[in-house]
Amino acid sequence: MASEALRICIAYLIVVILDTFVLSWQCISRPIVVGPIAGLILGDFKTGIILGASLESIFMGISAIGGSIPSDWTSATFITVAFTILSGQNTEAGLALAIPIGTVMQSISGLMMTFWSSLAPYWEKLAVSGKMKQFIGQSFFVSFLMQSVSAVVMFFAVAYGTGGLDALLGALPAWVMTGLGAASGMMIGIGVAILTSMIWSGSVGVFFFLGYVMVKFLNLSTLPIAIIGIVIAVTIFLQDKDVIEVKNSIQEKLGAGSKSSDEKGFFA
């Protein structure tokens, strides 16, 4: 287990550091990317993809907006995929574990964040002194250190926790496992509902009913629905693009005040 756990840890560190410092925010740290990566590392790509996609639907509506500190989806995905593959449990059991794992991991990074924030006066002094190289080097180093704490916890969880968890799940009666499976199915629903409540509007809301009809009455599976969705999205995008171009060209012809913040339109 230890070597698998080590590989998972290193992958986690690479993902987190690439995501925060090299790429942009949440480029590769989402479950849908991390799940397959973890699966590939542990030699079960398929389970990784399935878990990654399911976890993405759970965590899709969860994002760190403003001061909120939601569950840590990146480490949750790594640990969930590792647990599921290494213990040979079914994916439902793994999914049910993801939320508590994410919450625990988040409380660890929350602790580290407190420590990190206390260093602020030091960084400010360093920034004022104008020592650029020192500033960049040290902030990289400290961030790396912070992430390593989560990685170490993850290592122990995967290396020594899998056996215990496997035994625990094995000892549970069948009805508990059935319940866990049902709960994990509901969690995907809740994840999508959280997302929907944020983006809901009349013009988007109608698609919710279209989706319902396609699943419930036309009995379509996910892939054809996704393709229909893409077709609708592309059509709307192209049409919107035309409309915006027309709008812009009209405004250009009208001359000044070509911005939508235009004060004249405010009372209209």
Partner: peptide, 8 residues
């Protein structure tokens, strides 16, 4: 997108 904004 759903409401009008002015920055003055």
């Amino acid at each position: 997108q759903t409401l009008k904004v002015a920055i003055t």
